[in-house]
Design a protein around this nucleic acid. Structure first.
Lengths: 342, 342
DNA sequence: ATTGACTCCCAAAACGTTTTGGAATAGAAT
DNA sequence: ATTCTATTCCAAAACGTTTTGGGAGTCAAT
């Protein structure tokens, strides 16, 4: 089928060993032979069989990434951007990327285990960490290289990159409080997600800083989709004493909340303030443009990937973990100072 | 390091051959031996080394997908959904998915070639086909299995799934014309993309059906992002005689156009009609909700993946190519009948 | 006794590469 | 003549699996 080292060896009348070594530029091969071999390889259109190389070298130069998909209509812009970040970096460093899609749950761990045990990947990138994360538990205990985007409450320590969601949410809480809002709602996400936990916590603290206590009736939980943002925001607006500001746990839900408010005839940025978190590209172009917290997803993907590859190669990491300070992006969805109409 | 067939063989006192055959349930192994081997394998925590299997079997059970990324801030919800479609199907059929990210261009082809020649994947999924598509040319000529989402103008024939963009756009054109619009603009995409070509063509034809000629000053080109949709729509609205309807080549640009119109103080669905194409999840929740053409991206991914795997296994395809008839989703971005205010 | 059929097993080759541990030759130094 | 050093090469083992092509033993029919 395809041309192998053996074919080249036969053609140039040397051994397979010599051909291999010539191609790898070992210095126990004479310049003439090297020249000869290279030319033959070129002529015959040789490309190494990577599978064979991998078997021999006992490494795959591949990193694994398991996309947590939820149902068919899955499409968090977050992931395509993150994927682009790790994909481009991996390619640059000569690594392939093996992607699987898998809903979180029982089966998920098996997928990890299989890839680890049968040597399909050299390391993993973990995303959407959970407070108690069995994936991380497993990989830690197996001593398998991985880097996470996000922290966890597990005991083991491991390299990660994370954004300081707590800090970011505090920024937003302060912003809303400074605008004069008092009845503030929070559109939260499932608490088992580590980042959702931090965001809720940060928001509570931020309000507390300003002497406001987050009313627990004002906290509703959504599944991070726009659709659910719409639904949950609607239920908030249906309260007898509805909020004048809604902070959502992510941009997608905030966009849903904006639709919900507008459906009620409210003018977002005047009658009600709404904030997001992530600064996805859409946030800039929503109507009104969304005030949110910026998170450099592409760069984080890039960084996580680089850390993982260093770890695979046992190179020292500059730092075991990175906690980024996010920034507040003020657009128009909160408007000016809020004047209580009463 | 890890337990191999040899280890098991040693433990049970049989040959490696027998162990292998026992595990594969060959019937020239006695039931007792099978039992013995299976138990030992279980006990010792054996998992086959897939790399070795691949080398031996000369196939990888992996399919390749190269994501055409454009710059860092890349995030077409389209791709995450499509990826989920192929990923889930691949997993179900026991295939892995090797994903690369690569900007279209010179280098791109090398990435394909490398993966083909070094046996990294058994087949490819091609997406965003171009009128003249070197990837398809190459794979055709190399006789390598692939399935495309989209058609091309290349001579070779190959299996694909595509949506009838021409038909879909005609639907939209008719809809706008029926609403009474006369000055209609088209927010097109680079014509080298096959689907962009079809969409423009279909739109022109659709208007022609209604006796309207598409004015070439009313056709502007964008890069499919929301940001560019905003920019290009703004330039349309700046014309001395601006359009009363804008049809965008995809939803993302339509969303940008909505923002542009709203920034002008226009009420979308009353002062101006705007349409999209794709029906991404966001379209349902934009403000106003977007009238668009539905494209079942997840299912298409699923189908493409299944076709590819059949092709790899040389099973017959039910049909070499599938052309889906899309459907019109009428929401609120075109409003009711348009009354010319003059 | 020989043949045939059947059951259970295995040594060796193969997949394509890299690495190990020399071997062979030539020239220079002793 | 012998030893040493350099230079250039290669056979064989190794990575872990599957497949090929039998071998050995048993039992029954001839």
């Amino acid at each position: 089928m395809s041309v192998t080292l053996k074919d080249i060896a036969k053609k140039v009348g040397k051994s397979v060993t010599t051909v291999s070594r010539a191609l790898h530029d070992y210095d126990d091969v004479s310049p003439e032979t090297k020249e000869l071999v290279h030319r033959a390889a070129e002529d015959m259109g040789y490309t190494p069989n990577i599978i064979a190389q991998r078997l021999q070298k006992q490494r795959t130069d591949t990193i694994g990434f398991i996309l947590p998909t939820f149902g068919p209509r899955f499409s968090d812009p977050f992931f395509s951007e993150f994927l682009a970040g790790i994909g481009n970096k991996a390619a640059k460093l000569g690594y392939d990327l093996l992607v699987s899609t898998h809903p979180p749950g029982e089966e998920e761990l098996k997928t990890y285990r299989r890839k680890v045990q049968s040597y399909l990947v050299d390391g993993f990138i973990i995303v959407r960490t959970r407070r108690k994360d069995t994936r991380i538990e497993y990989l830690c205990q197996a001593g398998f290289p991985f880097v996470a985007f996000g922290r966890t409450e597990e005991a083991c320590d491991f390299p990660y990159v994370d954004e300081d969601s707590e800090y970011g949410m505090r920024l937003l809480a302060h912003h809303l409080a400074d605008l004069g809002h008092q009845r503030i709602a929070f559109l939260a996400a499932p608490e088992e997600l580590m980042f959702a936990h931090f965001r809720l916590k940060g928001f509570e603290e931020g309000l507390a800083d300003k002497g406001i206590q987050l009313d627990e009736k004002m906290v509703v939980f959504g599944d991070l989709t726009q659709r659910d943002g719409f639904r949950q925001a609607t239920s908030l607006l249906d309260l007898p004493d509805p909020p004048t500001a809604i902070a959502a746990c992510n941009d997608l839900m905030a966009l849903g909340a904006i639709s919900a408010a507008q459906k009620r005839g409210l003018i977002v940025g005047k009658d009600i303030a709404i904030t997001g978190f992530d600064n996805i590209p859409l946030a800039e172009h929503s109507h009104p443009p969304l005030t949110t917290i910026h998170q450099p997803i592409y760069q984080i993907g890039d960084m996580v990937c680089e850390m993982l590859i260093k770890r695979i190669n046992k190179e020292p990491l500059r730092s075991q973990s990175v906690l980024q300070k996010p920034t507040l992006v003020i657009r128009e969805s909160c408007g000016e100072k809020y004047i209580n109409p009463n």
